[in-house]
Simulated scan of single mutants.
Amino acid sequence: MTTWITVCDTCKRPEWTETQTGMTDGERLAAMVEAAAVDLADVKTRRVSCLMGCKSGCNVSIQAHGKLAYTLGDFEPDTDAAEGIVAYATSHAASETGQVPYRTWPQAIKGHFVTRHQPIPSDDQSE
């Protein structure tokens, strides 16, 4: 089953200025995440404009059908963060429930979790 990494490409960290790179911090992080995940079969990436976590910019979500989903934020737009996000998403994809044991988390994602969401019930489950 595919795990999706959704990256907010409009995120700007407090120190961001347009003159730095012409790209938002979210665009920079998205490009690095995309590069780190380019050949992975079970992990896909996509960009969205706004995950509504502006106080914690650079934000991503990690999700798959029938699994726990996570929102992470407050990343620096750098390769360590991107590689950690992709490594965690790879473990999420390999997990039956989406839960990944803490001892296996990449250091780069520790302290960045914002929310965890339960899987949406299937249509054939009662409310």
Score class of each variant (00 low, 15 high):
residue 1 M to Y: 12
residue 4 W to T: 04
residue 10 T to L: 08
residue 10 T to C: 06
residue 14 P to N: 15
residue 18 E to A: 13
residue 28 R to M: 04
residue 31 A to C: 01
residue 31 A to H: 04
residue 32 M to G: 01
residue 32 M to E: 08
residue 37 A to Y: 03
residue 39 D to H: 12
residue 44 K to M: 01
residue 44 K to R: 11
residue 45 T to F: 04
residue 47 R to E: 03
residue 47 R to Q: 09
residue 48 V to N: 08
residue 49 S to E: 06
residue 49 S to K: 11
residue 51 L to E: 09
residue 52 M to F: 05
residue 56 S to N: 02
residue 56 S to T: 00
residue 59 N to A: 07
residue 60 V to F: 01
residue 62 I to E: 06
residue 64 A to D: 12
residue 68 L to I: 05
residue 68 L to C: 07
residue 69 A to L: 00
residue 71 T to W: 00
residue 72 L to I: 02
residue 73 G to W: 07
residue 74 D to A: 09
residue 75 F to T: 08
residue 80 D to Y: 10
residue 82 A to W: 12
residue 82 A to V: 09
residue 82 A to S: 13
residue 83 E to L: 08
residue 85 I to V: 10
residue 85 I to R: 07
residue 87 A to I: 02
residue 88 Y to E: 00
residue 92 H to W: 02
residue 94 A to I: 03
residue 98 G to E: 01
residue 101 P to L: 10
residue 101 P to H: 10
residue 102 Y to W: 14
residue 102 Y to R: 11
residue 102 Y to F: 15
residue 104 T to F: 06
residue 104 T to I: 06
residue 107 Q to T: 08
residue 110 K to I: 11
residue 110 K to N: 14
residue 114 V to K: 11
residue 117 H to V: 00
residue 118 Q to E: 11
residue 121 P to A: 14
residue 124 D to K: 03
residue 126 S to E: 12
residue 127 E to G: 14
